[in-house]
Design a binder for these strands. Sequence first.
DNA 1: GTGAAAGCGCTAACAA
DNA 2: TTGTTAGCGCTTTCAC
Lengths: 337, 337
Amino acid sequence: MGISIIDLAKHCNLSVSTVSRALNNQYGVSEKARQKVLKAVDELRYVPNEGAKELVRKRSNVIGLILHGDDYEVEPAFLHHLPYINQVLNEAGKDTMIQTISRVNYHSGELQQFIQKRNFEGCIIFPGFLKGHPIFDDVLKIKTPVVVLEEEIEAPHCSSINTDEILGGELATEHLILSGHKHIGFINGLGFIHISNLRFQGYKKALEKHGIPYNQEYVMESNYKGEGGAEASTELLQRNPEITAIFFANDVMAMGAISNLSKRNIAVPQDISIVGYDGHRLSQFYNPPLTTIQIQYKEIGGKAAHALLELIEGRQGKSVSIVPRLLKRESVKRIDY
Amino acid sequence: MGISIIDLAKHCNLSVSTVSRALNNQYGVSEKARQKVLKAVDELRYVPNEGAKELVRKRSNVIGLILHGDDYEVEPAFLHHLPYINQVLNEAGKDTMIQTISRVNYHSGELQQFIQKRNFEGCIIFPGFLKGHPIFDDVLKIKTPVVVLEEEIEAPHCSSINTDEILGGELATEHLILSGHKHIGFINGLGFIHISNLRFQGYKKALEKHGIPYNQEYVMESNYKGEGGAEASTELLQRNPEITAIFFANDVMAMGAISNLSKRNIAVPQDISIVGYDGHRLSQFYNPPLTTIQIQYKEIGGKAAHALLELIEGRQGKSVSIVPRLLKRESVKRIDY
DNA sequence: GTGAAAGCGCTAACAA
DNA sequence: TTGTTAGCGCTTTCAC
């Protein structure tokens, strides 16, 4: 293990405490001593051991990033936020540690263990844990600051950052309505996932706002996967040939559906209009470029990181709502009636 | 800070060292004492402080994951490997810490600093740093085990995991040739990125193997982005209308191109055949499903993690080559001539 | 302005 | 089998 503060002190003919003070920019160090220390740091390539600091200071400067670790066949949602969050935290001088937690085999208390083990100053729980997952009970039991992404939580030591999913569903559906569509299908993701319900609510809200009767026949539940989108849309259109547009609860299902429709010579947007949800990086290069709802990953990441920093400073938790944007592209056709 | 080993010892009427031994499953502890300790751990919810262990053991159990941190407009390549690597490492009992390092403003010695600061047992350098980046010089200067992804490096304390990119380029091009294409364009990514050259070599190798003369006019360099792929393919086809197939050095450019061609009523694969590279998760749901070269992210991640674990155990570094696979889908048309 | 010394939580000699 | 103690690298009283 490299050289320690003791080596540094010897090299400078100073006491350890003086060196420590110089290193931490504290008062009560002569300019001469300070310079001597700084010079020695350079010469000896001294790097302070954060672990040792942590032990005495009782704060670690480490943030735990809690990801689910079950299967990555489906693109894990956390990947979109991760780099942005990490970058902001790093810039604020925090180090980040990834903790993979099982969605299925979680045992109560696991979160606390991870926090204590590495003495996390706070943590961020990434999307992927279902509402009602025991990890959220554990979050309420502790006092360590926690920021939860894409999930509501209320406690003084917690903040949550949520996209306004209802608005997202509404924007998507309304865009279809304003483009002249009357018979609009909705293919939702898994019903037990919270955001599915919100996006669904948005769909209904838009219909109502524009005086279009809600038809249960036009709604199907799928699985957020490409194949699922393809199957569901096939069935939906077969049963309801009058449908001219479909809103999918995520981009992947929308893509799966378009790809599949195309094989059967049903063209988008000529024969049917499609709106996705997520604003996936590749959606703009889809064929046709996909109209979708943009989730603001960078904004969410930044706000999440700052919210955590605030909690660590001692401020009260809050709930932040992020406004999604409609990205108008080419998968929707304007129709006259 | 929770309860310490001293509290535990008092609670058990045992000495700290006995408790420590019991906790670490060491010999020389009576069954009775061990049980007493284990029970107390449960009751008091004792969680050992890893930082303190680290200090005395001089090994941290922490792996540094080195990511670049400059811009994430383009999907960062590291995201694909990250969850797999992290999962294997976590399962092996290692914790992982993310360190974001600038590609542009790197100053020599930065890597060592990060390693010493948190006492990393080893680190993994993710793709994104160019060949010749000063971080690789630093890697050679240290003795801490390092695994480098998608970059060659040779030293006893280093291992590197590389996709056989030449083979990838060859497979892609050969598939086109075997489908009857003679005039095959290649749209490469940025020339100063190492993998670009390798994929290009693979392209030439396949041509040569099948006796098709290499035509420099058929090759263009773009930027790995969707718009770039669109522009380059437009120009390429304009200048060389006899081209019937294009191999793109990544999926995103291929998608950008297809989307753009489609607007101009050039259909894939009817009018032109396309092969991408990467095996992006969404490529199978593209319209049409994209024929591409699958990079084995999971395999690479797993091998990288294990390679690092081996280095930490004291074994010599090695270089692992991963074989990419051709995913035959529907963006290539078989033509007769 | 500086130094001596205690102590953070833990492991690992060494003694008993 | 158990206990005592030194010490990992650092910060922080408390004297001087």
